[in-house]
Write a protein that binds this DNA or RNA. Structure first.
Lengths: 341, 341
DNA sequence: CGGTTTAATTAAACCGGTTGCATTATACAC
DNA sequence: GTGTATAATGCAACCGGTTTAATTAAACCG
């Protein structure tokens, strides 16, 4: 065990006061005479004293640390949200510890250990929708939790939740394509049932079906393809769709990354975009602008930012009522969409 | 101050032993009879006891936490390295706290506070080359530090450093272009003198000049352009280069992101790639593959991974000699390069 | 000026673990 | 059986802050 170079008692001795007074002086207690405080601060500066974090935590029960649980390796949109979190937290005095979820099994253990008061003061969860059996764990956690891009109906009113209305977004994209004149519209997304319990693709697909129905266009199962997230799998899915005898004239991809896969498939097959095929993505991450992709913009960075704000507010005032905020989306039309051939 | 629900003394009482024995049992001390240990573990499980981290830290002087200092908002390559760090650390019992550097002023403060034993046990620094005045701070830090994609000659032998040979990389790219027959080769990069003290662009430019010289091609200052990192600025730089009366037939960009900017400029000007203009990037991040960019691949993820390994090794055995590892690079030829027109 | 409030300060008891040292239980040898 | 070495355990002192209660100093009042 290594002893600290300068402790509060050293400061106390040198300033000719007791440790308690030094502590109060540093924590801006009004119980210290201004003159005494100045003397103490002088010594503190002279010795370059910084209080021991572990001791503070033990004594106060506060950790001054927050945790973020994030599936870091899944999608660029997740990184963008994380950036929002990191940026906003930089202005506060909280430290941020990052817990990456690499595979589904880690989830349980992670939730179990993290949600304890002596480890962190609060938790942010990005893009991991709780399963039914995790609801109790989350609602009974003894630290405040904020879900970003994650949602469970049973948690409304218990936790802060920040989402977008993916069903409405999916509807809007599909309606836009229908408005262009398309009737043969395909969908490429993640498996509705996936180990991380990502719900966005599922919800966007629902909006897609609703919009078709509303326009009186029958839903054709052969136009719906799902596969693991990522460009490669999306490309394969798109290949299948585009190889159909009566192939779609437009494809709605559940994310920009997948839309790029669709574009690659189109290029392989010699289809011109948007003349032969229209493609729409979702998220508006940087790559969308680069490849000129029409997409549904989400406020990714802002979602992280907002999550931190809510968490900090709750920490400052634990009686804050948990809210469910729905961030807006916005269609960004670029060069991958046009009327059907 | 909130008291913990279950403490080590509760366990001790219920198991009919002393707190010290419980502590030893949980830390696998050989000083505990197997039978006693089992009895204790049983109680621990029954009460769902987890030791208080703050108390452990205070008592042992170990924090079980590492910090990573990273300019999160600058480039995708940085994110990729961070992923390597996060992934590798998941297998250890260390927590990772992330410190984002958003602007140059934060650097100093960040280094000052982080490098203290009672905050973290070790520090990783990604892509931030120390300035001369920071060298002392780093070498006198009372925790081990590993630099990833960052380097200072005065720190050799004092800290672990993981880099690539950017000068050699720049030379190789330029040589490759010369081999294709190009003699009019431009360079688009970051300012050699930038607030974050990023050195990679500067070094790659040096390699570029060396290769030109070695081939007997005179260096033309009007073929060299620098501007803030990012696609936009690179596009502007490229526009300038391509507007020259005797414009270059190839452009070497200091990063993939910048190479994409160059491609955009070429498209604007109606130049075909690679027939009219060859473009080479650096890093091989995901976007390079998507746009079919010829580039110099770096082992980004691996650099983070390796950094963690070295840090963990040093923590386990403080006598470990600090090394300077140079990771290899590899030219990946795709569709943006060809012989000059 | 003595008595009473009020303001500052100190002393000591926490917080919940770990660990050196003393002590007791157990094993072993003679 | 006693003596001695060894294995387990208990006790209490840490670690370095914060905070309550007790104490002292300063201010106020009639």
């Amino acid at each position: 065990m290594v002893k600290q170079t300068v402790t509060i008692r050293d400061i106390a001795r040198m300033a000719g006061v007791s440790a308690g007074t030094v502590s109060r002086a540093l924590n801006n207690s009004p119980l210290v005479r201004e003159e005494t405080r100045q003397k103490i601060l002088q010594v503190v500066r002279a010795l370059n004293y910084v209080p021991n974090r572990a001791a503070q935590r033990l004594a106060t029960g506060k950790t001054l640390t927050l945790a973020v649980i994030v599936p870091f390796f899944t999608a660029p949109s997740v990184v963008e949200r994380l950036k929002g979190v990191v940026h906003t937290l930089a202005q506060s005095r909280y430290d941020l510890i990052i817990h990456n979820i690499e595979d589904p099994e880690q989830r349980a253990g992670c939730f179990q250990t993290i949600l304890r008061r002596d480890l962190v003061d609060g938790v942010l969860v990005i893009s991991i929708a709780p399963k039914d059996e995790e609801v109790r764990l989350l609602s009974e956690a003894d630290v405040p939790v904020v879900l970003i891009d994650a949602y469970h109906p049973a948690l409304t009113g218990l936790l802060h939740q920040i989402t977008v209305d993916d069903v409405a977004g999916g509807r809007a994209v599909t309606k836009y394509l229908i408005g262009l004149g398309h009737t043969k519209i395909g969908f490429v997304g993640d498996p509705a049932d996936n180990p991380f319990n990502f719900t966005s693709s599922r919800d966007r697909a629902r909006g897609y079906r609703e919009a078709l129905e509303a326009a009186g266009i029958p839903y054709r199962p052969e136009y719906y393809a799902e596969g693991p997230h990522g460009r490669r799998y999306a490309r394969e899915s798109a290949r299948r769709l585009l190889a159909l005898p009566d192939r779609p004239t437009a494809i709605f991809a559940a994310s920009d990354v997948q839309a790029v896969g669709v574009l690659e498939a189109a290029r392989e097959l010699g289809l011109r975009v948007p003349q032969d095929l229209s493609v729409v993505g979702y998220d508006d991450v940087e790559i969308a602008e680069i490849v000129g992709l029409t997409t549904m913009r989400q406020r990714l960075f802002e979602s992280g930012q907002r999550g931190v704000e809510l968490l900090l507010r709750t920490l400052a005032d634990p009686t804050t009522k948990p809210v469910h905020e729905v961030l807006p989306t916005e269609l960004v039309v670029r060069e991958t969409t046009g009327p059907p051939p």
